[in-house]
Design a protein around this nucleic acid. Sequence first.
DNA 1: CGACGTGTAAC
DNA 2: CCTTTTACACGTCG
Length: 359
Amino acid sequence: MQEDRIVAHVDMDYFYAQIEERDDNSLKGKPVVVCMTSNRENSLGAVATSNYVARKQGIHSGMPCVQAKSRIKDLVMIPVRKDYYRSVSDSIMSVLEGFSLKMEVVSIDEAYLDITGRTNFDEATEYAERIKEAVLKAENLTCSVGVGDNKLIAKMASGFRKPDGIKVVRSGEKLDFLGPMDVRRLYSVGDKTANALESLGIKTIEQLRGASLDSLKGVLGDSKAEKIVAYSKGVDDSPVNERERTQIGRLMSLKTDSDDPEVIKAEIPQIVESIAGRLMTSSKVFKTVTVVFVLEDLSMKTKSHSLPSHAKSEDIILEEALELVDEFVRTSELKVRRIGVNVSGLEGDKGQKSLGDWF
DNA sequence: CGACGTGTAAC
DNA sequence: CCTTTTACACGTCG
């Protein structure tokens, strides 16, 4: 069994809620949820993260805050402070950089570290311990660390002993580690895929491993089928890579559902402003502008337009977005619930003038 | 092939 | 009927 790579996955424990707990001792031991608040009239928004006290009482991410509150009488609800969490995250990521030259930041609270050459499987637990100590020392927050010979195993391992845990899975242990798990826990298996698998009588990862590839392809498509079968065997050759953003977007709820183009367009300038700001700080140029509509039935529609060449100006995003809203509203039957804008086809701004910059 | 639109998944 | 943001695969059209 080849243990030619060693990859660690570091996952912060209940990140937002843990930060709030850390900053306010009176929260310890109480059920806490951090809420994303929409600007809607009749909504308290949804749960972004909950601490483990709340989770034990059935609270989970995405749950409407009203529902969470009705379930737990003394629930502490805290509004998200995304910018603050981002700064904490930046600090943690710079700590992690000290443990690997090849790091992939997956999200605000998660990163892969290629630690090949930095440690070996016999000492991996101690190495993970050192990572956890460094994070604790720097930010007084706990995380969970998984180690394996690829990203998939590292990811599955970090989730195994959460919170505040370490799990090292050696190459020879991969199959036994994954086998008994519910397929739903396999990375890249969500609701739809799990239901499709269930229709084939597949419940565990071991069963997925033994299933006929052809029948899987029939239900999931070639690419997805091949991918999850490889995963079920613990196979994942994808490298740990720094990621570059390829799109930047923002979506927001309207105060009330509307089919009035002027009401919808009124939200666009501030959305575009925030995108342009992020585009600027990351010094990127874009090729395509997309407007996203979530309709009253919660279905999602998009309208996009690609420019003849890359651009970076806020005015172009605004102009394109407004035009796309008009186009959409002309043909839509349903009211709009949420509106968003997205720029994609991002590339580093090398500073050369592109035609669009002057308009 | 590039552009456009949808679906799925993870956070 | 519940939020936000990003990635990626895939189908279709010209």
